[in-house]
Design a protein around this nucleic acid. Structure first.
Lengths: 356, 356
DNA sequence: AGAAAAAATGCAATCGATTGCGCATAAAAA
DNA sequence: TTTTTATGCGCAATCGATTGCATTTTTTCT
């Protein structure tokens, strides 16, 4: 008889096998099947064996959706980043995914494309999909945060990283951008550059704001004046970098070095300067941010700050999952500051011998 | 009275608002609420308005899980890639995400880390999560495909890309690796290189296999002999590239050019050769594959093949979603071949003037 | 053997949204 | 006014798995 059913399931594989099918076959109740498959001690070993082996034979695959609904838990975490296709973010995600997978969580990923409206929709959608927790880095446009209240109101764990805002009461994984901005600038000063410009991103975002403040502080500490005309704000694209360096070089009293908000803009500055014959680092010092893969291999190689993206992803996922699994409503939000390494390469090393 | 309830919901936001709560409040049935929220014509406009406005006031958020269970549809598509944190794949994913978002689909992303076992688990898990469709690129280890039968058996749309195998009956988004391998090799020949090596990935994967065959064909067409000692197989990491070039240069009769399976290995070859004083492209020609961001900006810049990763992602998602939404069980599998552009840069341009 | 205790399993409700069918009430036709 | 026909809405089942609370079966003890 069982064989008859087996045959039936083979014929019509489209109809999914459920615990009820198994139960019917074995003339027992669905509850027992459910418990057996979950190794509930209330079920005898003999029945468990029978059930499990039949489940295998029938090609049973649990319907996680049903389970999720009943358990009010999806084992899914959401991620919102500005753009997946960027080294820092994809490395971060890779870290999150590693931890998530090891802990039995799925990861739903969305990109805001740096648009506030899209970010809002995404957050809403992830909420409706009942993710167990959310990891987010804000879009460049984000200047309001009500959409995250869906999560905070219901005490759903929330971890921000990189681009965060102080207002938000949530866990945060960041780097000490102030210290880093300071360190980068100090390095340029140590190398003998005296008129140092800064290319900053939107300072609504803490990360760009803090880097800039660190930059200013370094100048002050070294008795150099902070000059507004040496600080340029834009979105740090390739285009932006080129525009910025043109603008800076056109000043009556141009800078002799720049600390850029990212490597992309630093690179485009470098390309432009090479073209018009400015030597780096002899005539002009350059330091970027975030250590893109290309920075190491271009000529001259670009000094930069190395953010531990992958490790930040690991940390974020660990923190989030711990929060999910221990519903300890400690309104005790952690801010984890990750170390950032100054990677000194050719573009800012004025007096040292250059390697091949 | 309604105000009382509103107050209640404000107090205990942890309890989610359901259609039943709205129904109770309005003293109507949950069915009506459901229909109203879905703009079912059987409900009068007046009732709809009442319901919608109350829903808003109460902060109702539909429980997609419940909806998914009932509708047997999750509006979610799964993606499996070897590694998220790689330009080609993250660009591809970015493309998928764009289309998916616009069509109301979520994207669950997993990485196999090029491990077959992990790939199996992922596919299983995505199935259990009842994704409406799956997009996959195989791991380097994948030499069996049974795990995908979960999807094919139940006619769940499946699209492979980049790393695919002919055995699989499914839609495929690929580039014409044979033609591309041919084109790259022909280009080196045109530039006057005569003893051309090839660094290949695992040839279980069509993409590496076809590229190699294209390479061989180009040699033959130009009356050059295909020599086994000039073809090296490995996993194309940085390390692998360096090992390979050492091995090639140690040959009694070393090559004067290499066509590499990816840009990473090409770059590491270049770095090594620069170090030992081999001039590129004068002494040695080099061409990579996949146009990593760094390839354009290193010195010399690396010639390569540009795969339209983002566009492939768009196409894959479009194809998959169309398949999902028109349950046309056309066992009529499409293979879409995307154009691949030969990007000629300095590393293979022997006689042309070099730009800055 | 009979009663009490322990072990194994079943019943039915639940999670929240959806939908076929049927029953009202109201509008239109006779 | 009575009958017909829309129109608006509710009942209850469903999706598949889980679980508190029985109930049945088995084991143990007197």
């Amino acid at each position: 008889m069982a064989y008859l059913h087996e045959f039936f399931y083979k014929m019509d594989e489209k109809a999914s096998v459920t615990i009820h099918d198994i139960a019917r076959e074995l003339k027992i109740s669905a509850s027992t099947v459910s418990r057996a498959l979950n190794d509930n001690p209330r079920i005898s070993q003999a029945t468990k064996d029978k059930i499990k082996s039949l489940a295998l034979k029938m090609g049973y695959q649990p319907n996680i959706i049903a389970s999720n609904l009943r358990n009010q838990k999806t084992n899914t975490i959401g991620i919102v980043v500005p753009l997946i296709n960027r080294h820092f973010f994809s490395s971060f995600i890779s870290g999150v995914e590693d931890v998530a997978f090891a802990s039995g969580y799925n990861v739903i990923i969305s990109q805001s494309n740096d648009l506030l409206e899209k970010e809002k929709k995404i957050v809403q959608s992830l909420f409706s999909n009942r993710v167990d927790g959310l990891i987010a880095s804000l879009s460049m446009q984000t200047n309001e945060f009500d959409h995250f209240q869906l999560f905070t109101n219901k005490n759903i764990p929330l971890v921000f990283f990189d681009r965060v805002v102080p207002e938000l009461e949530a866990h945060k994984i960041v780097v000490d951008d102030f210290a880093v901005g300071f360190k980068a600038t100090q390095h340029l000063i140590d190398q003998g550059y005296r008129r140092i410009a800064h290319l900053a991103g939107p300072t609504v975002l803490n990360t760009y704001h803090d880097r800039m403040e660190g930059y200013k502080e370094a100048l002050r500490k070294n008795n150099l004046t902070v000059e507004d005309e040496l600080i340029i704000f834009n979105r740090l694209t390739r285009m932006d970098g080129q525009e910025a360096i043109k603008q800076l070089l056109a000043l009556p009293h141009p800078p002799d070095a720049v600390f850029c908000g990212n490597d992309t803009s630093a690179l485009s500055m470098m390309v432009y300067m090479k073209k018009i014959g400015i030597r780096i680092p002899e005539d002009f010092g350059l330091i970027g941010f975030s250590n893109e893969p290309f920075s190491e291999v271009v000529t001259p190689s670009i000094s930069t700050l190395q953010q531990p993206a992958f490790e930040m992803g690991l940390k974020a996922a660990e923190l989030l999952i711990r929060e999910i699994e221990t519903k300890n409503k400690t309104q005790n939000y952690q801010t984890i500051t990750m170390p950032t390494e100054l990677v000194i390469r050719e573009s800012s090393l004025r007096n040292a011998p250059r390697s091949a």
